[in-house]
Write a protein that binds this DNA or RNA. Structure first.
Lengths: 212, 212
DNA sequence: GTCTATATGTGGATAGAC
DNA sequence: GTCTATCCACATATAGAC
């Protein structure tokens, strides 16, 4: 895509991986603008020389985190959505469940990814602006996967008569919100599972035909 | 609470009101940290001298917006929640509907208010830190109003067996998310109403006893 | 009350030693 | 590849003219 190694988001080089983890933690704590390169370096017990050896700018670190986060979402959901052996409501339930899980287990990356989508611009550099729009495109594609399953469920009579594209908003809003309040320090596997169950029930219930 | 006029949030003085509107717009556009005092001043066709005449620091402007936003939410919801003449499901529907409406019509204030809740600290000043915790307390109180209605609905057999406090998370998450994607420039009264209807249906549906 | 300086601190980014 | 030292731009906040 650019002069940079465009596979970095999927398989970050070892040196980069540490930086992304540290930066994701720092961005989650204080937000993108308020986080300094020194903060990121301190988070991994280094100084900023290390960060600038691997990345040209703070925005590039941010974009790598965001892209990785979005890719994790897509990779996890696609096989479920495409599983024709399951009825749409069950598929949607599992997609919501999986998404909820990622918001907890991959909290720092996912929380940073959320932020990117609401950003209009990242700085002055047009290359970074274009990268940001690529992320928005990934988000749109992700929403469409959900919308398609909702359409199938509506046509199968499982769901109410909704605008599927619009219906993804409350659905994903509820799920994404987890990344803002969930404390990854607390909670074990079982509590995370119960929580994801509750979310998936809520979401599928919200789309089902009303009982009366 | 502090040496400042603590009623300012409810009835801002005329000079302050303009600043809050301009700042809310600017914060919504670029985020708190990335917004400069010059940005705020430019937004209202003035220079920073005006801003600093009314506010000691950027954080104080932010806190006034956030407090006003939270107060708008509480003021709107309390009378609905306390209307004993309506069954819990109807009350919850109207509360969700009203909340959704505020996310759209008062987008800039509400979006800034959302941000405050996810911030851990606002700066070094302990007075501002305390003010931020006061905002968190308002948020907790607000969630409790929803939780109480959910409890009533569960006891009345309208809702599923849920942990009411936990149930407010997907509910308010879905609603709060509106402030992030809704474009206040677009959409008239009718489209806002339809959207709020859809959200309220989704939310009450998500809590109702499953049809099967 | 609103403006134009300006003091002061901080943070992104670079250069170059090791 | 990692560090320290430094440049420079910019943003908060203040001083003081009008």
């Amino acid at each position: 895509m650019t002069a940079d190694d465009d596979t970095a988001a999927h398989l970050p080089a070892p040196g980069r991986r540490d930086i992304l983890e540290a930066a994701a933690t720092a961005f989650t704590r204080n937000g993108y603008a308020a986080t300094t390169i020194d903060d990121i370096a301190r988070e991994m017990g280094a100084t900023k020389g290390r960060v600038y050896h691997y990345y040209r700018a703070k925005a590039d670190v941010f974009l790598d985190i965001v892209t990785a986060g979005m890719q994790e979402l897509i990779d996890g959901i696609e096989p479920i959505a495409g599983n024709g052996g399951l009825d749409p409501a069950t598929r949607l339930w599992r997609m919501a469940h999986h998404h909820a899980g990622l918001m907890m287990t991959r909290n720092s990356f996912q929380r940073v990814a959320m932020r990117a989508v609401e950003m209009r611009r990242l700085g002055e550099a047009p290359a970074q602006q274009q990268a940001l729009e690529t992320v928005i495109a990934m988000r749109d594609r992700y929403e469409q996967i959900f919308a398609d399953v909702i359409d199938e469920g509506r046509e199968a009579g499982e769901f109410r008569e909704v605008d599927s594209r619009l219906a993804t908003k409350p659905l994903l809003g509820a799920l994404n919100w987890i990344s803002l309040w969930y404390d990854p320090q607390r909670g074990d596997y079982n509590t995370r599972q119960r929580l994801a169950d509750e979310y998936a029930d809520f979401i599928v219930g919200g789309l089902r035909r009303s009982p009366r």
